[in-house]
């Protein structure tokens, strides 16, 4: 990159600084095999989620057109056996990827928005506002979140939107806390002092100076939050709180459970969806941890 001699617009400068820090971040991330493995794993999952509905036979989910036996063990035609209707467990598991990922990511985004907003506001304003917001955050943090999520889904009804909201509302507190601490650190920096001296309003300070500085941390924390959201979704679905029209891995495990896969010893019905959950959650966790390390060199030991 050559340094231009002509003065640039502040926008171009900012873009360049962003690009440079993104390149540096990628370099630090790339240096961690675990994080890289997580990222590769995630791209495979995304590919499965996108491609399955396009490639797989469209009647794979149909109960009436299923041709296999009832909970038949794996054979040449059905690699992973069949479910209680005779559908292929392998295809069902692949289909489940999409809804599981969508709910997990959407719920984490809801949590991210609430958590970032609360965190920045609580970190920016001192005194009463901050105190009240942190008490609320603490309250949500200590609550048995699964119980609260269950109660919300039971009352509001079993649909994807409700699941996303219930999981989002119960999981933002950790993010808020981390973001608040980071905001506190940024608040003391000279450029914010300068902005204040020039008469910048609260929302301008938070939006223009604090938000860009906490964004990388928000990203790392959101990726970790997706892992948690997928686990919560699976648990809720397993407890029977799933959207019946949208197949997820947790719902598959619930069907396996309630249709006696355990007493039938149908391990091929239980093993694949659970393994998928484990691997996808692990991938998100590895990615998030690697990103945290790349962002915070102090963690490198």
């Amino acid at each position: 990159m050559s340094t231009p001699s002509t003065p640039q617009s502040s926008r171009a400068l900012r873009m360049r600084r962003w690009r440079r820090s993104a390149v540096a971040l990628w370099r630090d991330f790339k240096g961690q095999p675990a994080g890289l493995a997580g990222l590769i794993g995630l791209s495979i999952f995304v590919a499965i989620a996108v491609l399955t509905p396009l490639v797989a036979p469209s009647d794979a989910l149909s109960v009436t057109q299923a041709s296999g036996g009832r909970m038949a063990p794996p054979d040449g035609e059905y690699w992973l056996g069949t479910d209680e209707f005779g559908r292929s467990v392998a295809l069902l598991t692949l289909y489940g990827t999409r809804v599981t990922l969508i709910i997990g990511i959407a719920a984490a985004l809801v949590a991210m928005v609430i958590g970032t907003l609360v965190g920045i506001v609580a970190g920016h304003f001192e005194g009463r506002v901050s105190w009240i917001l942190m008490r609320i955050t603490e309250w949500f943090m200590n609550l048995p979140t699964l119980v609260l999520a269950i109660v919300l889904v039971v009352v509001l009804g079993r649909s994807i939107a409700v699941l996303v909201i219930a999981i989002g509302i119960t999981s933002w507190a950790g993010t808020a806390r981390v973001i608040r601490a980071q905001t506190r650190g940024i608040e003391g920096r000279p450029y914010l002092e300068r902005a204040r001296a020039l008469g910048a309003g609260h929302w301008y300070q938070m939006g223009r100076h604090v938000l860009p500085n906490v964004t990388p941390l928000v990203l790392a924390s959101t990726i970790m939050a997706i892992a948690g959201a997928i686990l919560t979704e699976s648990t809720l679905a397993f407890l029977g709180l799933y959207d019946p029209n949208n197949l997820s891995w947790g719902m598959l495990l619930n069907r396996a459970w309630s249709n006696g896969a355990m007493s039938a010893g149908a391990w091929w019905y239980v093993l694949p969806p659970g393994l998928m959950i484990l691997v996808v959650v692990l991938c998100f966790t590895l990615c998030g941890r690697a990103l945290e390390v790349a962002l915070n060199p102090r963690l490198r030991r």
């Binding site: 892992a227 686990l231 699976s234 659970g274």
Partner: peptide
Amino acid sequence: ALIFFSAPTFWVAMI
């Protein structure tokens, strides 16, 4: 620890 963190517990119990 990370694996047990990532595994859905109900599934571990089923296995």
